[in-house]
Every structure is written in C-alpha cells, then in structure tokens.
Design a binder for these strands. Structure first.
Length: 743
DNA sequence: AGCACGCCGACT
DNA sequence: GTCGGCGTGCTC
C-alpha cells in the first residue's frame, strides 16, 4: 500500500511507498521527508494511496505529526470542488514547518562501495555533504541509509566583551555599556533600539571587537507583556453548539461577552481568528490574560514552529491569530471565534484564492467545534445563523454632501469657478478644513483616508479629453508627484507625462481623482508648519511621533486601517467616500457599510469625529450609520436585494477567468465554455457572461469572466466537472466564492 | 514552483 | 547559422 503525500508545490498529491521496512499504521497528517527531483522535500501524508503498478519512490523518513486529520478532510473537500492542486491549498493553509532545519546523516549500506558513484562516504553515519544528485542515485539503488535529526535550534545573538581592539567613540561606548547591561541582544536592531542609537553605531562596536555574535538556543517567541484588563462579565444567551454570532456594540463590550464564553472552553481548545494585525492586537490586549498565545505572519519561522509544537502537545490551549492559525494542530478544539467573518482579508491573494472564512466554517463543522462570528457588522451571509446584536454607541458622523445641486467636479482646483458652494476647496471641503484647523490648534491627531496612492487617478488633456493609458493594462496611468512620473497601479509600468497631448497637441494636463499626494499637498497648504505624514504602499513616513501621541495628521490609503489607531485621534475623514462605491460588484454596499462601522470603532477608547465627504449623502449604508441603526440593519436590507438577484447566501458562486494574449481568443474561449455548459443543461441563471473582467487587460493578458451560480454545492460541482471535459485553448482559472463579481 | 523540451523570430 | 523568447508538460 502506498501513501499519498502532499508537497508544498502547485501539484496534486503524489504516491510514495512507505520507508523500507516500515511497519505500522498510516501516519496521517505526519510530516515526511521524500526524494524530489534529485534532492529532498518535506511533505505531509494525507491518505493511503491506490497501489499503483507505477514504480514509486520511497519516503525516506517519517518525521512528526503536523496537522489534525480534520484539516486534511477540509482541504480535500475544497480541492474536490475547485480543482485547485492540493499542494497549493496546503501551501497556503499551512504557514509553518515546510522547511525545518534538519540534520541529514548518511552512510552506505554495509559492505557497499559508493566510489563508483563518485561518492566518498565514511562507513559510519556522517553529515551529508553537498552532492544531492549523486546521493539520489545511490538512494534509488537502495545503497544508502539515511537519517534526519532535528538539531537543537539556535539563533544568532550579540553580547558585549570586556575588552576590544580599537577605541570607541562616546556613542559607541554608550552602546557597548548598554549591551553589557542588557547582556544579550537578539539582533543589531534590537541592540540599537535599546541603546537609542542607530545600527551603524552598534555595528561599529562590533567591528572594533567590543562585542561578538554568538549562537544561542532559540527560546520561545518574545511575548508581548500581558495587559490585564478587568473585563466585566456580561450576561447573554451563551450558545452551546453549532454556529452563532455576536456583533455591534463597542469592541470592549463584545470582548466582555466573549470572555464569559471563552472561559468555559479554555480547557478544551480555543482558537480566535482576526482578519488583520490591528484587530489581532486589540483581541490580544483584551484576552491574552486568559493564557493565550499569539500566532501571525509577523512571527518568524522559529517562533511559529514553537507555537505549533506547543499547541500540538496540548501545552497551549488558546491561540489568537490571523488566518494561518487555522491549521494549528489542536488535539482538542471546542470553540473557534472568527472576527469579522465577512472580511475580504480572509480571501487569500496567492494561488489557491481560498476564502479562509469558508474554510473555518468547514473545519468547525468537521471538528464539531462551536463557531462564533463576531465583529462590528455581521456578514450578509451569516444573518441566517442565530445571534446577538448589541446596541451601537452613538455615532459621531458629519456628512459633507458634495452633490448639493451640483455635478461631480471635472478637475482639481483649476476649474473652481463653476463650483457649487459644497465643492469649494475640493478635495478638502470647507467643513473639513474647519475641523482640521481645530485639530491643529488643539494639538490633536487626525487621519484622512484617500482613495488611492499617488497624486491623481488620471490626467486628462484639457482641450480634447485624451487620457494616457498603460501599454500593458486597461487602466489609466496614475500621476505621481514625487517621481513626476505616470505609473500603472496594476503592473508597475512607468513613464514620464507627455509634454503635449499626442492627439491634439494640447499642452495642459488636468489631474482628476485625488490621491494621497494631492490630499497631502492641500493639507500642507491649509496648515503650514503642522506635522503631516503620508502612509501608503509606495511611501511610509515614520509614524512613531504619531503613535507616541504627538500632534499631526496622517494621510493614507486603506492600508493604514490595518494598523492601530493613533492614540490622540480626534478626527477621521473619508475624503471621497464614493470611491468605495465605484465598483459594480454585489458586495460593494456591504463593504462600504462595514468600512464606516470599522472606522467608528477603530480607536479602542476614544470616539473621534468621522467626516464623510460624498456625492451620495443618502446612500442607505451611510444613513444606517448616521441614524444610529443597529449593526445588522443594513445587512438585512442588503439581504433582500441578494435574494432578488440570487446572490449569496441564496447561491454559491464560482468565477471562471479566461486569459489570453489574444483578445479575440480570450473572448471566444469564454463563449465556448458558456456554450459547452449550456449544452450540458446549464440554464441562463447558472452561467452568467461572458463579459470582460473589471480590468479587461492586465500585463498584456486579456481577461474574460464567466460567473457560475448554483443553488447547491453538488450542482456547482457538476458544472465545474463539465468544464474539465474539454481542453480549452487559453488559460482558464476557477475561483470558488469570489469576493467580487461584476454581473 | 522549477526544469526540461520544443518551436518560431531577430540577431552577432 | 545560433540565441532566446515563452508555451507545454512532468515531477511519484
């Protein structure tokens, strides 16, 4: 009997035979070392294989149990539905343990001479030296014995020495003394931080021989000090089993409720998942005193490994973490709490495109764990489960109605003469200017959210309206003031703005659609001398003064929302809320509503004023918030629309993406798929499209979309199976439960 | 993913 | 004539 082994590669699971002389049960969920393309690789045993006639290679060694069998079942179900190679799913779901630092020991089988193969090995165990291909040859001949060991883990650290070779400068001397006081530093950066000098100073000390690097056994991860917060116990109808939800109110209130629940499950395993780091930190501060560990992408591999083992051994019974924590091998897991279950952050951007919230639900079901959704707003999809919605705190929102009898401004300040009063000062309204000035006068902090990085969404020729587009993608180039270049936010292509319009020779370019740079410029003009920072993907100012509580204004994109709120935050503004409504996909409104609620509870204690500048002041999502409606009011409204349109939760979706360098081919293959499915009995409600993707061309690839919609999982599976019946003449990818779909 | 093989266009 | 683009296929 062979074993099915998953490798961290975008391929299906493959068969291997058990190691020579192996007797025992199938090591389901164990890590194994297997030969792979001349070298070796770590894999996970996921099933018994079908005994092929195919000549298989042997697993070299079984290492240790790594995942719980329920995870294997869960991922298998996802593979069956989506057709994604299992390796890709494992690679994305299991964020630790694929590259253990193993000591590789080898020796020839007794009485064999390996010099024929160009290998000179001692007869007794020795560390394998670098000739993986030659090793693999003798391995395949069965002439090699091998063993892998986990060495004692070490990490590099620095310590001070009592004398060195060269003299030190005063600063270096200070750094040296600091190091002697703290005894050891885990990195140069940590040492420098402690001494409050730059890293060049500490490396100077190192170079002059007053300190040395040394290996030390790797300890557990540094633990953030636990902040004991006295959470009151809240009374509520505690769910006993199945799925339930708890939303709304103030975050602290929700934690109070959850604490009561968590305490009942502490002995039997609790997992608390958050969509991002700021919410991780918030949950950590509220709940870590219950004895939780933290697990997230920001830990280093050693730290992750440490938590993984602790959880496996049952020494750690509660973990607060981001999506990667889902695969942790809890021997018992009686409850999973999923914060902000409808967050797009759970959609993996990498190959598998898994929606981790779906995976969480499947896993909870598999393990019969209690599943609790929590957060500011329930997802429209989770309204069907029983739950509690806490009363919202009074909202502090001011809406600037740009639409007051006017049309959207065509350009920046240049054409202000035609503007209605509301638009005066665009992109910073008079109202916003007023409160910003107050913030500065009172020495407080503010955050302005701009819809995009760069200066403007596009530039346009004033006389003929020509807009420069990217060569490779179907998007306008965004203008960046810092570099004075036009840049594509899809593929990164850059070029200088043309001096005259290539169409009409006009020489005046008008920016449209303010970005961080534009807002920054306006803010600096409004408040000369006041600290103004920029934070987006291109450019991150050092925000330390802000986090230390110094006055200032931060201009950023939504990326900023994944960080914690500035401590003295008095004002938040969406400078152009409409940009969150610009997409034509069915979750847009829900997303906007969630953003507003999230902004209102961003700061854990204060409630800063939220200024929303918009052309759609009567948008129902905005009204639900300003009128103080409960958190589920808008989602319930949206649910009705979803039913009419037969969107989730009333159906399951799969998006089919056809990509080709040739536009006509991309379209025709999509049509072929549509016809094929129709011929197989799919109706017009089940196959939507084809239509060009929201961005019809990316990096020279033309993208065409189809949307498959089914009422049951079985039906969706059937439709997807029909797609495998033919070989399409273009790249076809399927995404289960896409988070955006434009039909 | 990597790495092979294999087929067409533009160059020393 | 070769170099090198990337499309396709395989890994057990």
């Amino acid at each position: 009997m062979s074993w099915l082994v998953v490798l961290p590669l975008p391929i299906p699971a493959l068969d291997f035979s058990p190691p020579h002389g192996f007797s025992g049960d199938l090591p389901l969920g164990h890590r194994v070392v297997v030969p792979w393309q001349g070298g070796i690789k770590i894999g996970i045993v996921v099933a018994a294989g079908q005994a092929h006639t195919h000549r298989l290679r042997e697993v070299i060694q079984v290492l240790d149990p790594w995942v719980h069998p329920s995870l294997i079942t869960t991922l298998k179900a996802y593979e069956t539905l989506s057709g994604t190679p299992l390796g890709l799913l494992y690679c994305d779901a299991i964020t630790c343990g694929w590259e253990p630092h193993l000591k590789h020991l080898v020796r020839p089988v007794e009485g064999t001479d390996l010099s024929l193969f160009g290998l000179e090995l001692p007869t007794d165990w020795s560390t394998a030296v670098d000739s993986p291909v030659a090793l693999d040859q003798v391995r395949e001949q069965g002439l090699l014995e091998e063993r892998f060991e986990f060495p004692i883990r070490t990490e590099l650290a620095y310590r001070g020495l009592l004398d060195g070779k060269d003299n030190l400068t005063p600063k270096q001397k200070h750094a040296w003394k600091t190091l002697l006081t703290i005894k050891e530093a885990a990195s140069l950066a940590e040492w420098a931080r402690n001494a409050e000098v730059s890293t060049s100073v500490v490396s100077g000390v190192l170079a002059r021989g007053w300190a040395e690097a040394f290996e030390r056994p790797a300890g557990p991860p540094e633990c953030v000090p636990i902040m004991e917060r006295n959470l009151k116990k809240a009374e509520w109808d505690i769910p006993q089993s199945g799925v339930s939800r708890l939303h709304g109110g103030h975050p602290i209130e929700r934690f109070q409720h959850l604490k009561t629940l968590i305490e009942q499950h502490l002995g039997t395993g609790v997992m608390y998942l958050t969509p991002d780091n700021y919410r991780l930190e918030r949950a950590w501060q509220a709940l870590s005193h219950l004895g939780a560990q933290c697990y997230s992408g920001s830990l280093n591999p050693l730290q992750r490994d440490h938590i993984w083992q602790q959880v496996r051994e049952g020494q750690c019974r509660m973990v607060i973490g981001t999506y990667g924590a889902l695969a942790l091998p809890f021997p018992d897991l009686s409850m999973i709490i999923l914060e902000e279950e409808g967050s797009d952050a759970y959609k993996l951007l990498s190959g598998s495109k898994m929606y981790m919230a779906d995976l969480t639900a499947t896993l909870a079901h598999q393990r019969e764990s209690l599943l609790v959704y929590t957060g500011s707003v329930p997802a429209v999809e989770s309204l069907k489960v029983p739950g509690t919605v806490l009363a919202p705190p009074p909202p502090r929102v001011h809406v600037v109605n740009y639409a007051e009898g006017s049309s959207q401004p065509e350009t920046g300040p240049l054409s202000m003469q035609h503007m209605k009063p509301a638009l005066e000062g665009y992109p910073l309204s008079q109202d916003l200017r007023k409160v910003l000035t107050q913030v500065a006068e009172r020495g407080r902090q503010a955050v302005l959210f701009a819809p995009r990085k760069g200066y403007s969404a596009l530039i346009r020729c004033r006389s003929c309206g020509y807009i420069p587009f990217c060569k490779h993608c179907d998007v306008p180039l965004k203008f960046h003031q810092g570099t004075r270049l036009m840049q594509c936010h899809q593929c990164g292509y850059r070029e200088g703005p043309p001096s005259t319009c290539p169409k009409c020779r006009g020489a005046i370019w008008q920016p449209k659609g303010p970005g961080t740079e534009w807002i920054l410029q306006e803010t600096r003009q409004l408040l000369p001398g006041f600290a103004v920072y920029r934070y987006d993907k291109d450019h991150q100012d050092d925000l330390r003064p802000i986090y230390e509580g110094h006055p200032g204004i931060v201009i950023g994109t939504q990326a900023l929302l994944q960080e914690k709120a500035p401590p003295e935050l008095a004002l938040i503004s969406l400078t152009l809320a409409d940009s969150w409504l610009g997409h034509s996909d069915f979750r847009t409104d829900e997303r906007y509503h969630k953003l507003l609620r999230q902004l209102l509870e961003w700061h854990p204690r204060k409630s800063p004023l939220l200024v929303v500048q918009t052309f759609q002041a009567l948008h129902p999502a905005l009204l639900a918030v300003t009128e103080g409606k409960p958190a589920d009011h808008f989602p319930l409204q949206d649910l009705g629309r979803r039913e009419l349109l037969m969107y989730p939760p009333y159906s399951l979706l799969a998006q089919v993406e056809v990509a080709s360098r040739d536009k006509a081919r991309s379209e025709s293959v999509a049509e072929d798929i549509q016809k094929h499915l129709t011929a197989r009995g799919a109706d017009a409600e089940e196959v939507l499209g084809p239509a060009p993707a929201p961005i019809g061309k990316i990096r020279g690839l033309f993208l065409t979309h189809l949307l498959l919609r089914a009422t049951t999982q079985e039906r969706l599976k059937t439709l997807l199976t029909h797609m495998d019946e033919e070989r399409w003449k273009a790249r076809v990818r399927i995404e289960i439960n896409p988070r955006s779909a434009n039909f």
